[in-house]
């Protein structure tokens, strides 16, 4: 009896509260805290971008919520992606930042990818990535030619399957027949950097946008060489670094490099909210995201910290993600062999 009355009351209340959300989405954020969940360890590119965005984000959301950043590492940010899709409350208070090409893991049928890329609410990408391979001077590799002729496999540090650090070297190994041993399991590029400097690794392949703010000293002092760009076009600051496409000998190799250019480029560092987040809150967050990336104070900080901001908005990201689901079966079959975890 009480249960029925309770349910009725609840029903009526929820009618009101439903309307309240519609009317007051702007008030919703007042006094609240938005949590950014970053899938990689502190001190790497994802973390640096997110912490900077988070500091200015609240200003651009009506109600000026405060923000906190949480690092949820593991499996190349797959742990964070799964968390955002399945576990985080869809109330517009949790924003995920995990590596976009993980969507391929879902498309290729990795059972550990427990999400559908088309379900997320996408806020945008602060900047497209330009993939490069950075090797230490100690590795003895200064050019792609050195690398191709290396007698030993070059040790490339990686976070987990589905992330740039993992997949791009695997694609390069397949396309260019580069001798590479991918060492997986680092919690983020900050740890890969340290391991490379400690001599445990020869280097790694990830975004120039992340290397520039975090490993500038190594590059400037000549202890780290940017040996190769995995993109189809040069980054303006890297005109002197050879493109991988130059060494591709077959059509198939060029196709693989196109993949390395796509999701690992524009879609690399997207921000997303859980599925079923109320539409008006998603829109508020999308607007706030674009406004934050153009905030003069943020841009002033970004210049100091050498971070690039050439944002891509949420609807565009959503469109690009949906397009990934239309990849030709021939391509996906090949990708399955190359980038799905095997052992």
């Amino acid at each position: 009896m009480f249960r029925i009355i309770g349910l009725l009351t609840l029903g009526i209340l929820s009618l009101f509260s439903g309307r309240a959300i519609g009317a007051g989405a702007e008030d919703f954020y007042k006094g609240k805290t938005i949590t950014f969940v970053v899938g990689f360890a502190a001190g790497g590119g994802f973390d640096t971008y997110t912490r900077m965005l988070a500091r200015h984000f609240g200003k651009h959301v009506p109600g000026n919520p405060s923000t906190v950043v949480e690092n949820m590492t593991g499996a190349g940010s797959l742990v964070a992606a799964n968390h955002i899709f399945n576990k985080a409350d869809a109330d517009g208070l949790t924003i995920g930042n995990w590596i976009g090409p993980l969507v391929l893991q879902h498309i290729l049928g990795n059972p550990a990818a427990k999400f559908d890329g088309r379900g997320f609410g996408w806020l945008g990408v602060p900047t497209p990535d330009s993939g490069v391979c950075a090797l230490t001077a100690a590795s003895g590799i200064k050019s792609p030619e050195d690398w191709l002729n290396s007698k030993r496999p070059i040790k490339i540090g990686a976070t987990g399957p589905g992330s740039t650090t993992d997949d791009v070297p695997k694609l390069l190994r397949e396309a260019l027949k580069l001798p590479i041993q991918v060492v997986e399991g680092y919690k983020g590029t900050a740890r890969i950097r340290l391991a490379a400097e400690a001599g445990e690794l020869d280097g790694g392949c990830w975004a120039w946008q992340s290397i520039k703010p975090t490993w500038a000293k190594g590059v400037e002092s000549g202890k780290v060489h940017i040996v190769l760009q995995s993109m189809l076009e040069s980054h303006p600051e890297l005109k002197h670094v050879p493109l991988a496409a130059k060494y591709a000998k077959s059509e198939e190799a060029r196709d693989l490099l196109k993949v390395a250019d796509g999701p690992y480029g524009v879609l690399a560092r997207p921000y997303s909210v859980p599925p079923k987040t109320p539409k008006e809150r998603l829109e508020i967050l999308q607007k706030a995201f674009m406004a934050t990336t153009k905030d003069p104070e943020l841009l002033a900080e970004a210049r100091k910290a050498k971070l690039e901001f050439t944002p891509v908005d949420g609807p565009t990201v959503a469109k690009l993600v949906n397009e990934l689901y239309d990849l030709k079966p021939a391509v996906t079959d090949k990708l399955k062999q190359i980038i799905l975890p095997k052992k």
Binding site: G74, V79, H83, G185
Partner: peptide, 20 residues
């Protein structure tokens, strides 16, 4: 929880709570 290298569920009894 989710294994830290490849994200496979370990001993979670199918609950989301134990993922972390």
């Amino acid at each position: 929880g989710l294994d830290p290298i490849s994200g496979i569920e370990r001993y979670t009894f199918g609950t989301l709570y134990l993922w972390d």
